[in-house]
Design a protein around this nucleic acid. Structure first.
Length: 422
DNA sequence: TCTGGGGTCCTAGGACCC
DNA sequence: TCTGGGGTCCTAGGACCC
């Protein structure tokens, strides 16, 4: 179904909170919130928690007392659980509908033909997901993806819709008049400011804007949004999820890190996690990026420093990625700084199949190695030059051209500690 | 004291080549 | 002496998403 006649956006309600609830029915009807990494801030709220006026993204410490006073059940996040339940929801959707695009951990677009573009069908999907996964979902139906997002908002907010809403094409103007521009998919804070400055406040006004003006000030992306609001589908259903072009693993630290050994351990962990993700999508990376930052809030100075390391050979081999990440870290680490966050990102990611030789096979061998074993290997080889790697033989077309950019062997770049605007 | 962790796409401008 | 233009690749930065 390349050209569906309509789209449905299926969105899990309060997903993380619903996941916790799916496993503990006694939580039904009670306010639930889920916290981010390090229990830093609130990233999910059940309806009951929302009703108490608890805002998304609020730092936990600011509302701790309030949560306690209202008997709110608080969870640290459990991404393994959420990922698992997400897979079950998506699996159910794939069973129920012919064309599914998994858009995020808690959202999917369905491509609908003319027999399915009605609330009846959506209701049956909603029921099935509820029965099979215990996750409540809302479904918005409309002629384009952007409008299905709008429809989904109404599905969620209008109680009598019970989570299903089809945007009536005949009355589009009247409905879009009630949608603020900031609530449109694709319109963020910067475009909201720009549009307000030009006295555009609603989706209806946005879709009446002149194409040339939109193109000039909001790029082609903004123009697509405007056309989609007019009911012209510009963003197709994308059923195959593409391999990631960048893969990152980063964390904020609960306590500031000042010891180099601690930072090395963290960066080694991030690099090995990245290597796992890389292998999971059958890819190898050509470069990696390491960064460290101080805290972002409160009085300065705030610093961010980073290094890019071009790998001699694209690889997904854990010890190599860990070693190179540590090499990058060594270039940017400075004593006497309280680091609050660090991360590793691999770039220039290509399918492993494009690189001949046994690079990928050898990567697999490291897959089950414990982090300690990896660290041992790293420590054994670190600073002694290269770890023995498979041949560089390759038939990749653009490889030889790119090869020119890869000399000398390590094109490591690191910047002086840069002050970040507070 | 305490503030998430991922990603994508587009554009402008400079380097370089012919 | 005068003085080109088209094309590609790369990078940084800005916008957005969940």
């Amino acid at each position: 179904m390349d050209r569906p006649t309509a789209f449905a956006l299926v969105d899990c309600n309060n997903f993380y909170a619903s996941c916790e609830r799916a496993f503990d029915p006694s939580l039904r009807g009670r306010p639930v919130v889920v916290l981010s990494n390090n229990d830093g801030c609130i990233i999910a709220r059940s309806d009951e928690a929302k009703a108490l006026g608890i805002e998304m993204g609020t730092p936990y410490y600011q509302v701790k007392g309030k949560l306690k006073a209202h008997g709110v059940v608080v969870f640290s996040s459990n991404y393994a659980l959420y990922g698992d339940l997400s897979n079950r929801v998506m699996g159910t959707l794939a069973y129920a509908a012919p064309a599914v695009e998994t858009y995020s951990i808690d959202e999917a677009f369905l491509g609908l033909d003319c027999t399915q573009a009605d609330p009846q069908f959506a209701r049956s999907v909603q029921r099935l997901v509820g029965q099979w996964t215990h996750i409540p979902v809302s479904i918005g139906i409309a002629p384009t993806k952007t409008l299905s997002k709008v429809a989904n908002r109404f599905a969620k907010r209008r109680k009598r819709c019970r989570g299903v809403f089809r945007l009536p094409e005949e009355e589009l103007d009247a409905w879009l008049d009630r949608v603020e521009v900031r609530d449109i998919w694709g319109i963020g804070p910067a475009y909201t400011r720009l549009l307000h400055k030009n006295r555009v406040y609603t989706a209806k006004q946005l879709r009446e804007l002149d194409d040339r003006w939109v193109r000039r000030h909001m790029t082609i992306v903004g123009l697509r949004t405007v056309w989609e609001l007019r009911g012209i589908s510009c963003i197709p259903l994308d059923r195959a999820k593409a391999a990631k072009a960048n893969i990152m693993c980063s964390r904020s630290f609960g306590e500031p890190v000042t010891e180099k050994a601690d930072l090395r351990e963290a960066v080694a962990t991030f690099a090995s996690r990245v290597a796992e993700k890389l292998r999971a999508q059958q890819s190898v990376a050509g470069a990696l990026y390491v960064f460290v930052t101080t805290k972002r809030f409160g009085p300065g100075p705030h610093y961010r420093n980073h290094a890019t390391v071009t790998l001699p050979v694209p690889t997904a081999y854990t010890p190599t990625l860990v070693r190179e990440a540590l090499r990058g870290l060594d270039g940017i680490w400075k004593a006497g700084i309280r680091y609050k966050k660090a991360g590793v990102m691999v770039q220039d990611v290509t399918p492993a199949a494009q690189v001949q030789g046994d690079l990928f096979a050898s990567a697999g061998q490291a897959q089950d190695a414990s982090l300690m074993a990896v660290m041992d290997a790293v420590n054994a080889t670190y600073g002694r030059g290269t770890l023995a790697l498979a041949s560089t033989g390759t038939k990749r077309k653009d490889w030889h051209r790119k090869e020119g950019h890869r000399s000398p062997r390590y094109t490591t770049r690191w910047d002086e500690l840069a002050e970040v605007r507070a």
